[in-house]
Each structure stands twice: as C-alpha cells, then as structure tokens.
C-alpha cells in the first residue's frame, strides 16, 4: 500500500489521484466522508466525542509545473520545495498523459570551467520530452501541467526507498489507523501543505477539533560533520516528536503525554530538531479560538528530492505512538476541558 501511495502523482494543487486512492481505501471504515471545496478528504470514524481529535496528513508532494514551451520544444518549469542541485538529469512524468521527460543539463565535455563549479538556477533548467518543435511539444504538454519524478518504490530489508515519502508515509499511517483501530477520530488528508500549509487550515475550521496532530515526515540529518554536533533525528530510531518548529510551538501537555506514552509502551522515539521546517500544525493551531496541536514525524533521508529513504520499523513505531498517544489523551479527558 505504501508503494502504491508513493508512486501516485500528486503535486500540490493536483492531489486528485491520491485523494481517489485514499477514498477507495477508507470507504468501508468511515462513518462519514467529506471532500471539501478545497480538495481535502475528511473522514470521521465513530461517534463525535470530547475531546474532539483530528489527525492530519497532507496528500501533496513537492514537484514541478510546466510554465512554458520554447521554440525548439523544450519545456520551462517551476519547482516548489526542491533545490536545483537535485533536479539535474532526472527523469520526470508530466501531466495526466504521463509524458516522460528528462531535465536537461550541459554535459561535462561542454561545460566551461566556471560552470563546473556552480549549480545552475532552476529558471535556467529545462525539460526535454524529445519534441523537435513547439508545435510537437504542445501536442503532448500544456502550460500548467504538473510533473513529478519518475521514481520506482523499492524495499531493501528494513529500508524503503522512493519518492513522495513526504508525506505519503503520513497518509499511510492514517490509513492503517482508520482500518485497524476503532478510535473515534477525524482523519484529514489535506492538500497544499508544501505551498503554505493551506488545506489543513480549512479542514481544521470545518472539524473544529480540541486537539490536532499533524502526522508528517522530517528530514533526517545523517551526513558526516567535522564538529561535535550530531545531526538528528536519524532513521531507525523511531518517530520524532516536535517541541517547536518554524510554524508552531507544540502544546506542552501533548508533547509530555506523547513522550510519557512512548516510554511506558517502550516505543522508540526521538526529538525533532527544533525550529526548522513546518507542518500542517502551523495553521491548524491558529484556527478559531486556537487548537492544541502536536506533530509526530517519521524521519526520512533526502526528502524533497527524487529519492528518499525511510525505515519500516520507524513507520510501525509511529503508528503505535499515534494510537497509544491518542488513547492516553482520551483517558486524560479532564486536561482538555
């Protein structure tokens, strides 16, 4: 199921195929399913009760949008959330017709000395779909078409490798929970997180939760450093709990309960690096009169690129942490009055 989710095309604003897939998988399990005007898929399981808890995972992934077709049939594009140095020489899939293209670059033989030392800016890159003229390209491609990396999902022991882990892993975790547990929750699969945490804001306004948890991924930092400053979190050591990031200071009671629960249930966990990144919790906690919010994120290497690596053990631990944490939150109902 994770393989299927990750191989779907769903750049911000074009989450339809992910939404359709998810709807088909949750139809049997939800008491109510709403697709809101913005494209969020919101499912309620069980009876509404206090405190009302909402889980959010965003369906969208980072990707490209075609912005123009040049005379010779090369495509100009914009990238959102992707650095140019991971774009070069990658294969992409464009539009509903799944046209295959390659992000072109100057080979080493032709590059000048100064060009060898620099990464070109995204605005100077192009996608080559093998068309020889604007007219030929226009038969296959329209301005505004989305493109994603053409990456096959692979497994190797405990590790999985693929694209769109941010945040199909989160979607996968919510799917597992809605299918395999009986907890009365609102599950929100949100749109447009990567372009400004947008869908979650509207979903939270509709759901009006007392508590919201964003289930997302976080970049693991496993590269050598000279200094005695470890990079963390790392894959294989459990899901990461956020204290604060650029978008939210997580509710201290919730963070406390999640840590306490993980220790009690012997679920491995780690802390997320403070004050970097942002998630759906950033907009959810500011909705209405405010929502107590926290984030549980599965660490993954090399996210926002064609290829990321994550650990199946971490994903399983994240599912347990969310489930056990929510049961504990419900037990302590008086805290949220």
């Amino acid at each position: 199921m994770l393989k299927e989710l990750c191989e779907l095309q769903g750049v911000s604003g074009d989450e339809g195929s992910v939404r359709d897939y998810l709807r088909s998988k949750i139809a049997k399990y939800a008491a109510e399913i709403i697709e809101d005007p913005y494209g969020n898929l919101i499912a309620r399981k069980g009876k509404s009760q206090k405190p009302r808890i909402m889980l959010a995972a965003h369906m969208d992934e980072v990707g490209l949008m075609i912005t123009g077709i040049e005379k010779k049939g090369l495509l100009k594009f914009q990238a959102i959330g992707i650095m140019p140095n991971v774009l070069l020489a990658k294969r992409v899939i464009i539009g509903k017709e799944r046209v295959c293209g390659v992000i072109g670059h100057k080979p080493i033989h032709l590059a000048k000395d100064d060009e060898l030392k620099q990464v070109p800016e995204t605005k100077n890159l192009f996608i080559d779909v093998g068309a020889s003229s604007r007219e030929e390209a226009a038969k296959m491609i329209k301005v505004g078409d989305y493109a994603t990396f053409d990456t096959e999902f692979r497994e190797n022991g405990d590790l999985v490798c693929g694209k769109a882990f941010d945040n199909r892993i989160g979607c996968y975790i919510l799917l597992q929970l809605i299918q395999k547990t009986d907890m009365p929750l609102c599950y929100a699969f949100t749109v447009q997180e990567e372009v400004g945490l947008r869908g979650a804001k509207i979903a939270a306004y509709r759901v009006k939760p007392d508590i919201a948890l964003a289930i997302d991924t976080t970049s693991s930092g496993e590269w050598p450093t000279e200094k005695d400053i470890a990079q963390y979190p790392v894959i294989g050591k459990g899901p990461a709990i956020t204290i604060a990031d650029r978008s939210v200071v997580c509710d201290q009671k919730l963070v406390g309960i999640l840590k306490e629960t993980a220790r009690y249930e012997k679920i491995p966990f780690q802390m997320k690096r403070p004050m970097v990144g942002g998630t759906d919790a950033g907009t959810m906690h500011l909705v209405g009169e405010g929502v107590r919010s926290a984030v549980i994120a599965t660490p993954a290497r090399y996210i926002h690129s064609p290829m990321a690596i994550a650990s199946k053990k971490d994903i399983a631990a994240a599912i347990r942490l969310v489930e056990c944490g929510i049961r504990k939150i419900m037990e302590k109902g008086e805290l949220w009055a």
């Binding site: 400053i229 204290i243 604060a244 403070p274």
Partner: peptide, 14 residues
C-alpha cells in the same frame, strides 16, 4: 532553544 548538547557539555542553540 537548545538544539544539541555536545560531549563536553556545551549547549548548541538557535
């Protein structure tokens, strides 16, 4: 906010 505590006990922060 403390981001890392090194081996000698110094705190890195942001």
């Amino acid at each position: 906010i403390v981001t890392y505590i090194d081996k000698k006990g110094y705190l890195r922060f942001t």
